[in-house]
Computed example of a mutant assay.
Amino acid sequence: MAYRTAIVGTGGIAVAHIEGIRALGGRAEVTAVVDIDLDRARAFAETWGIPRVHASVDEMLAAEKPDLVHICTPPGSHLPLAAAVLRGGSIPLVEKPPAMTLAEIDEAIAVERETGAQAVAVFQQRFGSGAVRLRQAVADGSFGRPLVAVCSTLWYRDADYFAVPWRGNWDIEGGGPTMGHGIHQFDLLLSILGPWQSVRAVAARQDRPTDTEDVSAAIVTFENGAVATVLNSLVSPRETSSLRFDFEHATVELEHLYGYGDADWRFAAAPGREGLADTWAGSSAAEVRSGHAAQFTAIFDALDAGLPAPVGFDDARQTMDLVASIYASAFEDRTVVRGSIDGDDPFYTSMLGTGAPWLSGARA
Rank of each mutant, 00 (worst) to 15 (best):
A226L: 04
V227I: 13
A228C: 13
T229Q: 08
T229S: 15
L231F: 11
N232L: 01
N232C: 12
N232I: 02
L234E: 08
V235I: 15
S236D: 11
S236V: 04
R238G: 00
E239Y: 00
S241Y: 01
L243G: 03
L243N: 08
L243S: 03
R244I: 04
R244W: 01
F245A: 05
F245Q: 07
F245W: 11
D246N: 10
A250F: 02
A250R: 05
V252R: 02
E253R: 10
L254G: 08
E255L: 08
L257R: 08
G259S: 09
Y260N: 05
A263E: 14
A263K: 11
W265H: 14
W265R: 13
F267Q: 12
A270D: 03
A270C: 04
A270G: 05
P271W: 03
P271C: 03
R273C: 14
E274H: 14
G275M: 13
G275A: 15
G275P: 12
L276G: 09
L276K: 04
L276M: 07
A277E: 15
A277V: 15
D278W: 10
D278H: 07
A281P: 04
G282N: 09
S283K: 09
S283R: 12
S283Y: 07
S284W: 13
A285P: 03
A285H: 10
A286K: 01
A286C: 03
E287V: 04
E287P: 07
R289C: 13
R289L: 13
R289F: 13
S290Q: 05
S290C: 12
G291V: 13
A293S: 12
A293T: 02
A294T: 09
A294G: 01
A294F: 06
A294R: 09
Q295C: 14
F296I: 05
F296Y: 12
T297K: 14
T297R: 14
T297M: 10
A298C: 09
A298P: 00
A298W: 00
I299F: 14
F300I: 01
F300W: 14
D301N: 12
L303V: 03
A305M: 12
A305D: 15
A305W: 04
A305C: 11
G306W: 11
P308M: 03
P310Y: 14
V311D: 06
V311L: 15
G312Q: 10
F313V: 02
D315W: 13
A316E: 01
Q318A: 15
Q318E: 12
Q318V: 09
M320F: 02
M320S: 11
D321R: 06
D321Q: 10
D321P: 00
L322F: 10
L322T: 10
V323K: 03
V323S: 02
V323W: 01
S325V: 08
Y327Q: 01
A328M: 12
S329N: 07
S329Y: 08
S329I: 05
S329V: 05
A330N: 13
A330W: 05
F331C: 04
F331K: 06
F331P: 14
